[in-house]
């Protein structure tokens, strides 16, 4: 069997580590997480494909490297309900509801209805102090959105890593909200060609 040729995009898993490290230093770097929201949509809407998932997803690659190459994955079979449409679409709706809640809270902070929370919330429950990454002078709603987005990215990364450890390396991809959304867009655009 021939060895696969390595390309620059095979090393994008490093971006996952860089992203979470930057957010540990300055929370404003969390805004870079929007790349992972915008690029898949651009590929799906513009190109009718999942090239982001297939080639450029840093998280997918990170899970493959840790699960397969480092060998951290137990490689168990995922339960059927986790692969089902109800869970996949349900998780997508929940995830985007949480994303829009971040925008709403940022608006509240921007309107001075609510004060900024200098904390990262993990798994939508546990608040971790993260105040050293924020300095006074930054527009409050900009910082609030960054805290919210970093919380969402960190939460989904934890879920993805747990799924990788227990099940197959890229199990997260089965119920990844962006993957589900872009596949739905691609299905809507797909026109079967007769062979």
């Amino acid at each position: 069997m021939k060895k696969q040729q390595r390309h620059w995009y095979h090393y994008l898993w490093i971006w996952s580590i860089i992203y979470f490290s930057l957010g540990f230093v300055n929370i404003l770097f969390a805004w870079l997480g929007l790349i992972s929201f915008c690029l898949p949509l651009i590929f799906a809407i513009g190109g009718g494909n999942k090239l982001f998932c297939n080639r450029y997803c840093d998280r997918g690659q990170f899970l493959r490297v840790m699960g397969s190459q480092v060998g951290l994955s137990l490689r168990r079979e995922m339960p059927e309900w986790m692969k089902g449409k109800a869970f996949r679409y349900g998780f997508m709706v929940f995830f985007f509801a949480m994303f829009f809640n971040i925008i709403y809270v940022s608006w509240l902070v921007g309107s001075e209805i609510q004060g900024i929370q200098e904390a990262v919330t993990v798994l939508w429950t546990f608040q971790l102090p993260w105040n050293w990454t924020y300095s006074v002078g930054i527009t409050p709603w900009v910082a609030q959105f960054a805290f919210g987005l970093y919380s969402l990215m960190l939460t989904s990364e934890i879920i993805a890593i747990v799924a990788m450890l227990i099940y197959k390396p890229r199990s997260w991809c089965v119920f990844c909200p962006m993957g589900t959304l872009t596949q739905t867009i691609c299905k809507a655009k797909y026109v079967p060609t007769a062979k």
Binding site: M1, K2, Q4, K50, C53, N54, R55, G60, R64, K83, R88, P169, R170, C173, V174, C176, G179, T180, Q183, C186
Partner: peptide, 15 residues
Amino acid sequence: NMCVACGTCADVCPT
């Protein structure tokens, strides 16, 4: 119907 088009298969396929 089960495929999520993640591309893992294409990534690992040796041929």
